Computed example of a mutant assay.
Amino acid sequence: MSEMARAPTSLSKLDRDREAALRELDPLTVTKLWDNPCWLSFRLNFIAFRFNDPVYRWIETRYGLVRPEFVALYAVGLKGGVAAKNIVSSAGLPKNTLSRAIQKLLQRRLLKRETDPADLRSYVLALTPAGRAIFDETMPMMVGQQTAMLAVLTEAEQKQLCELMDKMVIASPAWPADLEPEGTST
């Protein structure tokens, strides 16, 4: 593979750390992380999985909430008074999956529907006291997981990472939503 396709690395300590990781990971994961022309996508997914898997397993074991249910509860915990369509647009999960998750949360009385003060014909979601308790109990565990993941970076590197990710998120609406232009599929 050409050097252009490899993920950019240049620090000798980073190279040593990478070599140690090469010995700990299975060969396919190593290839996907370092010898991959799509290194960014795989690394983002790898890191996200390392955050999400233990967090969602813990939440399911402790609270009986599967990932889509907690995604919805967490969204309402961060910003109450949102409509289900707002959760769908921010979650990256299918609408029907989130709709079922929201229904289960309503049945378990972890969420409640309220009339939208801006449009009396619509409803928004809010946490119930039981839903708020789960949100408040899970937040320290999630922050702790993030803190552990970021511990390898200095404060300046964490700030730089945040700024670089901000740039990418802000630019994301300009990225193609479909890989094939309409009418060209076979």
Rank of each mutant, 00 (worst) to 15 (best):
A7K: 14
P8C: 03
P8K: 04
S12Y: 11
S12V: 09
S12P: 13
L14T: 01
D15L: 14
D15A: 15
D17M: 12
R18H: 02
E19F: 07
E19L: 15
A20K: 08
A20G: 11
E24H: 09
E24T: 13
L25S: 02
D26W: 00
P27W: 05
T29R: 01
T29K: 05
V30A: 06
T31Q: 15
K32D: 11
L33M: 04
L33K: 05
W34R: 02
W34N: 03
D35G: 06
D35L: 15
C38E: 15
L40C: 11
L40Y: 15
S41W: 11
R43L: 07
N45D: 13
F46T: 06
I47R: 12
I47V: 07
I47C: 13
F49Q: 12
F49A: 13
R50I: 06
D53H: 12
V55D: 12
V55Q: 04
Y56Q: 07
R57C: 06
E60C: 09
T61Q: 10
T61G: 08
T61M: 12
G64R: 09
G64P: 00
V66C: 12
R67L: 05
P68W: 00
P68Y: 00
E69M: 09
F70R: 07
Y74Q: 04
A75D: 04
A75W: 09
A75F: 13
V76Q: 05
V76Y: 04
V76H: 05
G77Q: 02
K79A: 02
G81L: 03
V82R: 01
A83Y: 04
K85P: 06
K85E: 08
K85D: 12
N86Y: 13
N86M: 07
V88K: 08
S90F: 12
A91W: 05
A91E: 03
A91N: 04
L93G: 02
P94F: 06
P94E: 01
K95P: 06
N96M: 14
T97K: 10
L98A: 05
S99N: 13
S99G: 09
A101G: 10
I102R: 03
Q103I: 14
Q103M: 09
L105V: 00
L106C: 05
R109M: 10
L110V: 01
L111G: 00
K112C: 12
K112R: 10
K112N: 13
R113G: 02
E114A: 02
E114Y: 00
T115I: 03
P117F: 03
R121Y: 08
R121L: 14
S122H: 10
V124S: 01
V124A: 04
L125A: 04
